[in-house]
């Protein structure tokens, strides 16, 4: 038996909206630890890792480890019928091929349930090594969204360079070049507005802006985003999910031909 109840159901809606552009079908892996998902986009350029810890749920029952295979476009259609303030319950029998979504309005005057057919998806797990990154930047997620959007008007790729001066986002296109420099800015009364740059080594990597823009669909999950970079690793763009876990996007850099 698998049954979990999430009071802040909007988190689930936001997570699915943030990843469904990159991944069509995915397994949600359920264990006593919580719900997790790991999936690559079809071209194996980006990897998504989601964790929702069991203690973030009001009720969490998972009798044995199960993988629930689902089509994310269908999950999105179903979650769109839930109100933003609804409490969401997910349940599945051990050997069933259906996942039941139950949506309860906050004052319990509307309760709906929808059964969704599950899919058998061959899951491929990648080992993500723990790494000490050369540069870690924490900045307002809205600011990162704006930078990615603005640079997309000029070019297709972004060079992210971290030096002791700050972090520079640069692009080149047919109409010209653009640079945006963000410096460390610790706003003590508003920590969410801070930009904090921790650098062990200067690092500069090039990425496809199309993917970065896709990652920023997670902006509403968290007021800040953490970007971790090392010269020999994919970049990590992490949105924390309030007291429950995280949604991380890994993106392979562009390399010199």
């Amino acid at each position: 038996m698998f049954e979990v109840r999430l009071v802040q159901g909007s988190l689930l809606k936001k997570v699915v909206e943030a990843i469904r552009e990159l991944v069509t079908d995915a397994n949600i892996d359920c264990s006593s630890t919580g719900l997790s998902l790991q999936a690559m986009d079809s071209s194996h350029v980006a990897l998504i890792a989601l964790l929702l810890r069991s203690d973030g749920f009001e009720h969490f029952r998972c009798d044995r480890n199960v993988s629930i295979g689902m089509n994310l476009a269908n999950v999105s259609k179903i979650l769109r019928t839930a109100g933003n303030d609804d409490i969401i319950t997910l349940k599945a029998d051990d050997d069933g091929d259906l996942l039941t979504f139950m949506f309860e309005s906050p004052n319990q005057d509307r309760i709906s349930d929808i059964e969704m057919k599950l899919m058998d998806i061959k899951s491929e797990h990648l080992g993500i090594p723990d790494a000490e990154y050369e540069a870690v930047i924490k900045m307002p997620s809205q600011e990162f969204l704006r930078i990615c959007k603005d640079l997309s008007n000029i070019g297709d790729t972004v060079v992210i360079s971290v030096t002791k001066e700050g972090v520079k986002f640069s692009t080149r296109g047919d109409i010209g070049n653009a640079n945006i420099v963000c410096r460390q800015n610790t706003t003590l009364d508003k920590p969410d507005d801070s930009t904090i740059i921790q650098m062990k080594e200067p690092v500069s990597l090039t990425f496809a802006l199309r993917y970065m823009n896709s990652f920023t669909k997670a902006t509403s999950l968290s007021s800040s985003v953490t970007i971790s970079m090392s010269s020999d690793l994919p970049i990590v763009v992490e949105y924390k999910i309030a007291d429950m876990g995280y949604l991380r996007f890994y993106l392979a850099p562009k390399i010199e031909d």
Binding site: M40, H44, V45, A46, T206, P234, K254
Partner: peptide, 14 residues
Amino acid sequence: DNKQGNILSFFKKV
């Protein structure tokens, strides 16, 4: 132009 890297060249299947 730079070539797009692949996640599988950084992280291995387990």
